[in-house]
Amino acid sequence: MTNFINTYLPNVVANWEGDNGFVVAIWQTLYMTFVSAIFAGIFGIILGILLVVTTDDGITPHKTFYNILDKLVNLFRSIPFVILLAVIGPFTKLVVGQTIGPKGALVPLIIGTAPFFARQVQLALVEVDHGVIEAAEAMGLSPMKIIFRVYLKEGLPELIRSGTFTTISLIGLTAMAGAVGGGGLGNMAIAVGYQRFENDVTIVSMIFILILVFVIQGIGDLLVRKLEH
């Protein structure tokens, strides 16, 4: 085994440890993925709920608010991620003090993902049976209670499904952010593997990312299966 690795993946071995090695890169990717997933998740859920309840047949309709929020979400969703990285550079510096490294990637990752997830949340919650919402209103539940006890409870399987989906596309974004200075496996594949013609590094980076994707998909599917009746 060791022999096989040394023969066919020489550059992977050479780049395994150290500040720019694989171990660090894997940690950086996990860090970028999960920290931004948590923040984008929170913002996305809040924005998604606001979109659902303020729409015309929502539980607290508000035309102006809905229209503004709806347009903003669309706007941010339309900016290509690579450009977003550059455009919000100064803002990123203001928030986390740096624009490079995994920490510098967090701000654009969150801003790039939250509106996308907000839309997913909106779609998931709109699917919740309107009759059940009406029944809850007829029982005298306040809008806050309807959000927590009906929308989030009934929409939970669909929310997890879109959360899984969003996290996976987020991994794609971390690779892109990595390539422009964020670090992580994306950086590894491009800066080391591609630009120095060390193809084994590129391939192994990809394999690690695929494993991450499969694990997240698997956990998501498992949760959904447990929750659906």
């Binding site: 009759g131 059940v132 029944a135 007829a138 009906v150 009934e154």
Partner: peptide, 13 residues
Amino acid sequence: IGMIFQHFNLMRS
């Protein structure tokens, strides 16, 4: 005021 509906409107979860 209790209310019942044509499509029952129960919580699936």
